[in-house]
Each structure stands twice: as structure tokens, then as C-alpha cells.
Design a protein around this nucleic acid. Structure first.
Length: 358
DNA sequence: TCTCTCACG
DNA sequence: ACGTACGTGAGAGAC
């Protein structure tokens, strides 16, 4: 008791929790400096052991929202336009995505209730306008289905099923109706893990299960979606020969460590190869449609304007008078941006704020 | 300047 | 023995 600690210092937090309170005998350390790791994911497991843990987590959430958003964003309002103007960069991301900075408007909070209050602060220009948001549903998994040609995953999308629930049913060998929330959450982690090139170790860490149990899940996944396993093998074979991979449109990412003798370097390159074709194809797709939509809006004499791109989402400022005419061609344009054979789904909505548009 | 943490897809 | 899921930007502490 009576100890002073800077709540912004992860090192001091770690010393309090693990040296003083000894909350975890199997404490984790960070990779570079071997400090105690105090990430939210780690702390959440210790919440029951001392009331201070939950308080630290809550402080962290608030501090992040304050420093990155509440304090920062008002200072970025342009003095003559009265609006926030981000910068987009298209030549810095290895996969072909575009990136936003000063300020970064691609990381406006949405996942927590407190965070959503910040997103709600982004509003249409006046009461005659709305925010329009259009986003791709599960675009990367659809692209994985397309690139791999996996019949089972394709069918899942053709039936417009919930991909994570369907995957849960498949890997657990149960009917769709018997899928629990827990099973769906696990399947979601596996779905994303696979397209990132996850290992049994990594999946085990994330699901808090043993490496052996994680391997069973991955094996089961490949048994259900054999095309995905082939996609990974074919991608790696191509990468080893050429030292690059390419998107559907042929844009390359070089992966020169793909034949490295150092295991860690080589495996990292393999994960990059597996993911880049998928993430990059998604990036190509939305860039193409941004061009098409901009052209259609300006040549069509519409006053709706594209404001933001957030990787799989486009945000527009739209006069209410255009609310019938504009959304249908934005939705159709996004859906047909690339001639995929797997169905593409787009969610679209509008409202007085960015949050309401979702 | 590096490291950790955490906001997003 | 080692490291272990992709891509980012940004604030704060530690040095």
C-alpha cells in the first residue's frame, strides 16, 4: 500500500502487479526488453485476482481515447474550412492498401461504447446532408474463397451463410443450429488466423488452448476447406520460385526472405506471402471502385462526395435529396468492382453521423 | 529514438 | 533453442 505509480508507465504497472502483488507466477515478458507484459489481453486473465487490474484496464481505455482522439482531433480542425482533413498515402503500404495520417482517420473508435461516442462526433455538414457508409462484408474471406477456388467456402458464401458460424459447424462437426457463441468465436479466430498464416502455437495462444488442440482445429479446417490448404501451398511454391507474390490484378509484393535459411525470417515471409495476395486484392478492388464512383458522382452532377476510405469501407457526404439515387449505384459499383465468381456483399447505410451510418 | 500499448481494417 | 497471425499510426515512457 501507499505505492506511487505512473499509470501511463507499463513498466511500473508490471512491477506493481508482478513483483509486489505477485499476481501471476507464470508472468510473461515482452520480446525486446524482457519487461513484464501488461497488455490488455494478459491483464484480462488476472482480473479476478485483484481489483486494481480492472481499474488499470479501465484507465488505459480512457487514457487512449483521451490522448489519441478527444485531445488530438479538435486541434486538427482546419481554420478556414472548419473540418478535419486527413492525408492519404498510397505508396507506403506493402500490400497496396492506402494509409491515413495527420490525423489518422482509419482508426476512429467503434468497438466499445465509449469509443462509439467519438465516432458519433463525426457528423454530416448540415441538416440537409447525411453520412453514407458502404462497407464490404467479409471481403478478405470471399477473396480467399475466390483465389483458392475452394468449393465448400464458395458454397457458404453462395448461400449467404454466416461464415464464422458455418465454419464453426464444419470444424466441430455439428449442425448450424447447434453452434454456440463460443464455437463461433473460435471459428472466427481460425478464419482470420488462416488467412494470416497462423501456426498451431499462435492459435493456441489466442484461444488459450494447447498447441495440440489448436493443431486439431487447423487440421479440421483444412479438411473442410481443402482448397485453402492448396492455396497456401501454391502461393508458397510460386513465392519460392519468384521471390514475390501477386494480387489478382498482378501487383507484386516481393518476399525476398521466402528462401531464407533463418527459420524465423523465412516463416515471417511465408505469412506475408499468404496474406498479401488476399489483403492486396481487396485493396486493388476498393481502389478501382473509388475511381469509378468518383467519376460517376462528378459526371452525373451529383453533390455527394467521397470523404473517407477505411480499407473495406467508403464514407460519403450526401445531400438528403440524393438519398434515393446515390446508394444503389455505390452498392452495385462496389459489388461488381472485380469480376469475382464468389458473391460479394456490401452493407450500406446513412444517418446524421458516421456512427449512425453503420 | 526505441519500446510498449492500443485504436482500426 | 527460438519464435510463433497480416497491415497500419500515434501517444507516452524510458533512455
Amino acid at each position: 500500500m501507499g505505492e506511487k505509480v505512473d499509470l501511463n508507465s507499463s513498466r511500473q504497472i508490471g512491477e506493481i502487479l508482478f513483483d509486489k502483488l505477485k499476481l501471476d507466477p507464470k508472468v510473461r515478458r515482452t520480446a525486446k526488453t524482457k519487461q513484464y507484459s501488461t497488455r490488455a489481453e494478459i491483464l484480462q486473465r488476472l482480473e479476478g485476482r485483484h481489483e486494481i487490474v480492472g481499474q488499470i484496464l479501465h484507465y488505459r481505455t480512457c487514457a487512449k481515447l483521451m490522448s489519441n482522439y478527444v485531445s488530438e482531433l479538435p486541434a486538427t480542425i482546419h481554420e478556414t474550412t472548419g473540418r478535419i482533413h486527413t492525408q492519404y498515402n498510397q505508396a507506403s503500404i506493402v500490400t497496396g492498401r492506402i494509409q491515413s495520417d495527420r490525423p489518422n482517420l482509419q482508426t476512429i473508435p467503434v468497438r466499445t461504447e465509449l469509443g462509439r461516442r467519438i465516432r458519433r462526433a463525426f457528423t454530416a455538414r448540415d441538416e440537409d446532408h447525411l453520412f453514407l457508409s458502404a462497407d464490404y462484408s467479409q471481403i478478405e474471406l470471399r477473396i480467399a474463397a475466390e483465389l483458392s477456388g475452394d468449393a465448400h467456402m464458395r458454397t457458404t458464401f453462395e448461400e449467404d451463410a454466416d461464415i464464422h458460424a458455418a465454419t464453426a459447424a464444419n470444424i466441430h462437426g455439428v449442425a448450424l443450429g447447434e453452434v454456440t457463441e463460443e464455437m463461433r468465436r473460435t471459428a472466427k479466430t481460425v478464419n482470420f488466423g488462416i488467412i494470416y498464416g497462423i501456426s498451431p502455437f499462435g492459435l493456441g495462444e489466442r484461444l488459450n488452448i494447447s498447441r495440440a488442440e489448436a493443431k486439431v482445429l487447423i487440421d479440421q479446417y483444412f479438411a473442410e476447406y481443402p482448397g485453402i490448404e492448396s492455396y497456401i501451398e501454391e502461393t508458397l511454391t510460386f513465392a519460392r520460385e519468384h521471390e514475390y507474390v501477386q494480387t489478382m490484378l498482378g501487383r507484386r509484393r516481393y518476399v525476398r526472405d521466402i528462401n531464407a535459411r533463418n527459420n524465423t525470417q523465412r516463416q515471417a515471409a511465408e505469412r506475408n506471402a499468404i496474406n498479401s495476395r488476399i489483403q492486396g486484392t481487396g485493396a486493388d478492388m476498393i481502389k478501382l471502385v473509388m475511381r469509378t464512383i468518383h467519376k460517376r458522382l462528378t459526371e452525373g452532377g451529383f453533390k455527394t462526395r467521397m470523404l473517407l476510405q477505411v480499407h473495406d469501407e467508403l464514407v460519403f457526404d450526401m445531400p438528403k435529396a440524393e438519398a434515393d439515387a446515390v446508394p444503389p449505384f455505390i452498392e452495385a459499383g462496389m459489388r461488381t468492382a472485380l469480376p469475382l465468381t464468389v458473391p460479394v456483399k456490401v452493407g450500406i447505410g446513412s444517418g446524421p453521423s458516421w456512427l449512425d451510418a453503420h
